[in-house]
Design a protein around this nucleic acid. Sequence first.
DNA 1: GTCTATAATTTGATAGAC
DNA 2: GTCTATCAAATTATAGAC
Lengths: 194, 194
Amino acid sequence: MIPGPMGKQDYSEKALEILEAAEVRMRRGGFDAVSYRDLAADVGIKSSSVHYHFPQKSELGRAVVERYTDNFLSFLGAPDAPKNSVEDRVRRLCQGYQHALTHDKVPCLCCVLGAESLDLPPVVSEAVSNFFVRLIGWTSTALGDLSGAEDLAKHLISTLQGTMVTALALKQPQLLIDAEPYLVRLVRQERRSP
Amino acid sequence: MIPGPMGKQDYSEKALEILEAAEVRMRRGGFDAVSYRDLAADVGIKSSSVHYHFPQKSELGRAVVERYTDNFLSFLGAPDAPKNSVEDRVRRLCQGYQHALTHDKVPCLCCVLGAESLDLPPVVSEAVSNFFVRLIGWTSTALGDLSGAEDLAKHLISTLQGTMVTALALKQPQLLIDAEPYLVRLVRQERRSP
DNA sequence: GTCTATAATTTGATAGAC
DNA sequence: GTCTATCAAATTATAGAC
């Protein structure tokens, strides 16, 4: 079974503000880089009030990751829209990563949390794992009828994740642009000779 | 200029123990996952004694990254040894990453720290950046006479970094093995039609 | 929902004895 | 080099008033 959207828990407006602030901080420095005190200042309330919305930090982390996953997939759109070619879809996937870094100015959440997987609270690392499962599912579908589509999907996602890390460490966001032709060409070749 | 080895600062035996313990913890959970208290317990002394060897945490972090970089490049060997083919060298690079995850049981240090670059003390993020510069230099040389060798080197490193993140998040170390043929094939093609 | 107040723990770091 | 002792700050979390 392919995991689907978690179903919005219709968060209150303030809860959404907290999730948004937590996402930015988490993407910037990882799970430990988020504190209730900072979040409270971000949204203009006290830290005990943040606890009212999210009693435990691990649950806050899980919520942030699930919301991020939904938003990311929402940005990508349908993986099998007939109006888009396979190459269109691969480019759209690349855009998803480019958008994360150049528009949001912070890396992909699951790039950061994925790297610290071994040290995360289980509910959070499970949510991160689920991000990858769902994104690989999207990509696999986007690749269409192709033997080894899932392996290729994993490879494409991995490449984009890693390019983001390198782009970040070297302060060269251009790397994410440069990666696109590599990936488009790879997909083209795999479809010719699977 | 290509940055070379930093020149071993001949650390004392205890200092090396601390660096080793710090590396494991940092690779597992990032910079914030390391505390003087934990390190002290790891090496059997008190936290104030750890401060004697490394007064500031940022300098400890820098030392860990520089030592890791030296060790990683040392594992790879010479990038231009005539006895090795270009494909041999690419496979050796893949082995470096495979070794990190399957032998050490923890991800590449700069995969973890690279993702949190934006939140690291400057001396640490500079050391991480230098890891990538030196590794890209190694790879670029390993690729031999090839136009666009440096871009291809960046792409190979990025792919391996990202594959490590995905392998970790999905608990599928096999992904790092699967990546090798993709990369070898890519290099083969780029050398045929640059 | 938000506040004040507080608890219990952990953190990086320093002073000074041995 | 390692220790004890200590510090100031930050952390997650809870109790109870409004």
